[in-house]
């Protein structure tokens, strides 16, 4: 039973560190995924600008601000306290890493956050992220599509484990979503060099 005592000790101390009262977990600053960068460097896309990103107007404003995890705990965005702005920055850093970001470009990518949820339920945790992306060039729409990605994982009955893990999986969806968008041949065609 020593191993159980050891692990219980570790869990209890970690819980006291991570979850004293209610925890607000801030996601990391967006980073480019190397896999996406290497894929983009092999394409013939032209640099693009990033335009306006916002929450779908049909959704409650709170959806853009935080996600509650098991009561008073939450995950938040470090970018303007906004998930839609986190998505915007996630896309910008991906394009920049591949040398495909140009704030002055006439090709502009706009986005609307349509889905944002995570659940640290006991047993199986789930998360979902969705956004509609619109590409315009000189005012003409070249691309308009919604992408939705999701994730599920084994979720502990102890909040000290389950809540940070849910936040981590939710954060990972931003790379997954931008990766889907940037790998879409239709999107790449919309950004193709003229």
């Amino acid at each position: 039973m020593k191993i159980i005592r050891l692990l219980t000790l570790a869990a209890g101390l970690a819980a006291s560190l991570q979850l004293t009262g209610c925890a607000n977990i801030s996601m990391s600053q967006p980073k480019a995924a190397l896999e996406t960068t290497t894929a983009l460097r092999g394409t013939t896309m032209a640099p693009a600008a990033i335009g306006k990103f916002s929450l779908d107007s049909s959704r409650p404003a709170d959806v853009d601000k935080s996600i509650g995890l098991r009561g008073g705990n939450s995950v938040k965005s470090p970018i303007d306290d906004s998930f839609s702005q986190y998505l915007r920055e996630s896309l910008r850093v991906e394009l920049e890493a591949a040398g495909l970001f140009d704030a002055a470009s006439k090709t502009v990518i706009n986005g609307t956050l349509t889905q944002s949820e995570a659940d640290a339920a006991i047993g199986t945790g789930t998360a979902k992220l969705g956004a509609r992306f619109v590409v315009t060039r000189a005012g003409s729409v070249k691309y308009d599509k919604e992408w939705i990605v999701d994730d599920s994982w084994e979720s502990s009955f102890v909040g000290a484990t389950a809540i940070p893990l849910a936040a981590a999986h939710y954060e990972g969806l931003y790379r997954k979503l931008t990766g889907k968008l940037l790998a879409d041949p239709q999107f790449q065609a919309a950004l193709a060099k003229e």
């Binding site: 692990l7 570790a10 970690a14 560190l17 502990s156 102890v158 000290a160 893990l165």
Partner: peptide, 25 residues
Amino acid sequence: FSLGLRRLGVSLLIGASATLTGCAS
């Protein structure tokens, strides 16, 4: 139950790093 505790404990080393002292080595 034991498996659950193991998964719990081993996943928390980083989180506990600031507080684990005393009897743990």
